[in-house]
């Protein structure tokens, strides 16, 4: 039982890495933006805008939850 399986896929790092969102989705988004600049279908562009916005909200929400929980845990540990 040499290796644990601590975490596989989570909301932001679907590919198993803590840097997944920053390094996988963002370049794809930037590339898509580049493609859209040169050409593209209007409704595809609208879909991509909606997806990028949803992704952005998820990142902000995750960070928000992290800081709220980190604050609560630190306060609890200090009180103990």
């Amino acid at each position: 039982m040499g290796c644990a399986a601590p975490h596989i896929i989570c909301m932001l790092n679907f590919n198993g890495g803590a840097v997944g969102l920053g390094t996988s989705i963002s370049p794809l988004g930037t590339y898509a933006g580049y493609l859209l600049l040169s050409s593209g279908n209007f409704w595809l562009a609208v879909c991509f805008l909606a997806l990028t916005s949803a992704c952005f909200i998820l990142v902000v929400a995750m960070m928000c939850r992290y800081f709220v929980n980190a604050y609560r845990q630190t306060r609890k540990i200090r009180a103990a």
């Binding site: 989705i25 963002s26 370049p27 794809l28 988004g29 930037t30 898509a32 933006g33 580049y34 859209l36 600049l37 593209g40 562009a45 609208v46 991509f48 805008l49 990028t52 916005s53 992704c55 952005f56």
Partner: peptide, 9 residues
């Protein structure tokens, strides 16, 4: 639209 997508990314 493209600029917003790139900016958000």
């Amino acid at each position: 639209i493209a600029q917003i997508v790139i900016g958000l990314s």
